[in-house]
Design a protein around this nucleic acid. Structure first.
Lengths: 155, 155
DNA sequence: ATATATGCAAAACTTTTGCATACAA
DNA sequence: TTGTATGCAAAAGTTTTGCATATAT
């Protein structure tokens, strides 16, 4: 699959179009606002954060419904980080495969792209099938600790 | 740190005692019930699942408070799997470090212990510090796919 | 004895849903 | 035109909290 230098899929908009169409969904004002906000984000976003960006033009119940529809259409994926609410980001195939750095102090969630370790993880997935019978289709790896900023404050 | 053959810490009860004491907490009937249920579990448990085990002897609000206290005392850790509610398991230092296999079809969450890959993950954590300034203290790796049972049903 | 934990009820917060109206294709 | 999406209000599900009482140490 064609990807740009930093890993994001080329023709992102076209692929999103295709996924919405496949799911029988229409390009409405609200969906444009939500998808645009997510495309500009550098980290997974909560519903509240998205609401702050799209504003009152999209009521909260519609926002939830739009996000849910986008997850159904495989445009967004849902994540939870034990915060008591969900976060969302672009589907893995629409962005570069990556992992997360979660700061225990300030709560910020940053993206992290691994290189060679991915191969190891894929190899591990294959081994899991043989030993447990579980067929791994995807994985998620998060690191927890202190971000650069909070480390400097603490020291 | 001394661990048994399958990786669980020896003197588990003593260490839990110490953590409760350090946190100024008392050994009550409710806490015994909740901790015992968790020690017997082979996978992360939701509040509802714990409630089914401990029964009406512990009202729901007390159950939530007990679990929250146990997380504060670093006896339990909180996990979320994008299910809309939290799950809990014994703190990593009280059990063997492990990862999770999450079945997309039936929702079952199973524990998975990796061997050599852990070393790779720890090495990666060290490398992250150098390249991003983020100090990784722990990590979490989950695999998503189909469990042995659901694979056989699907085929 | 005294600080901590419990039980109950009420509320807060996140998320979902019913239904009439508005809109995209 | 026709099926899909929206907006509003109401509700459902999960989790938290205030306060009087009970309990562990």
């Amino acid at each position: 699959m064609a990807t740009s230098a930093h890993g994001r899929r080329l023709d992102l908009d076209g692929e999103i179009d295709r996924r919405l169409a496949r799911s029988g969904q229409r390009w409405t004002r609200g969906r444009h606002a939500v998808v645009d906000a997510m495309k500009r984000s550098v980290a997974p976003m909560s519903v509240t954060e998205l609401q702050a960006i799209v504003g009152d033009a999209v009521p909260l119940s519609s926002l939830y419904r739009i996000i849910s529809d986008l997850v159904d259409a495989k445009v967004f994926i849902k994540l939870e980080f034990a915060e008591g609410f969900a976060r969302f980001e672009l589907d893995e195939e629409l962005a570069a495969h990556h992992h997360h750095l979660v700061c225990h102090a300030c709560g910020v969630v940053a993206d992290l792209e691994l290189g060679d370790l991915e191969v190891t993880l894929d190899t591990t997935a294959a081994a899991i099938v043989r030993t447990t019978g579980f067929v791994a289709q995807s994985h998620r790896l998060d690191f927890f600790g202190l971000c650069r900023n909070c480390v400097s404050i603490a020291s």
